[in-house]
């Protein structure tokens, strides 16, 4: 709000209206700049986590290990078996919704809550789980691992 400098007089300077005008202009600017600066400030989690498909690079996963991947709002257990093959299952135990894990000492998927066990095809082999785990499809795209719903 730059005023006409030529017409400026002593009287104008003390002008209450102008004071408010200039003051509120600055306040207004601040109310624009603050969100913009905050927006540009890198967030705590600095990048988008790819929810669904990309689980990571092949080299991120050791043989004979399992990793929980967030798939939308549900966990998925990505297993790399001793031969280096990948498999993915819903990590939600079919018994009571606990999150299962891969136990390389058993070579099985194991639920800590009630000792439910599934084999590496997701079949419930021991303990209370009533159904097999839902399988997900793992495909390799170059060096990337992609997980899809089957």
């Amino acid at each position: 709000m730059v005023e006409h400098p030529a017409r400026e007089t002593q009287k104008d300077k003390r002008d209450f209206l102008k004071l408010i005008l200039v003051g509120s202009s600055f306040a207004w600017l601040a109310s624009i700049i603050y969100p913009v600066i905050s927006y540009l400030k890198p967030p705590k989690q600095s990048e988008v986590v790819v929810k669904s498909v990309k689980a990571g690079k092949i080299s991120d996963f050791a043989n004979d290990s399992g990793t929980i991947i967030k798939f939308g709002s549900k966990p998925v257990l990505l297993i790399r078996n001793a031969n280096g093959e990948f498999k993915a299952f819903s990590a939600t135990c079919t018994h009571l919704d606990c999150t299962v894990q891969y136990r390389n000492d058993f070579g099985l998927i194991w639920c800590a809550c009630h000792n439910g066990k599934y084999d590496l095809n997701g079949r419930n082999v021991s303990g209370p789980p009533p159904r097999p785990l839902e399988a997900f499809v793992v495909t390799l795209q170059g060096d990337d691992i992609l997980i899809h719903k089957s």
């Binding site: 408010i20 005008l21 509120s24 202009s25 109310s31």
Partner: peptide, 23 residues
């Protein structure tokens, strides 16, 4: 609250601008 504050600021600005235009 932020919206409220921004609205107050904008309202003041609008009113003062309006008065200024009148003048």
């Amino acid at each position: 609250k932020g919206l409220g504050i921004a609205t107050v600021i904008i309202t003041i600005l609008v009113i003062s601008l309006y008065l200024y235009i009148r003048r």
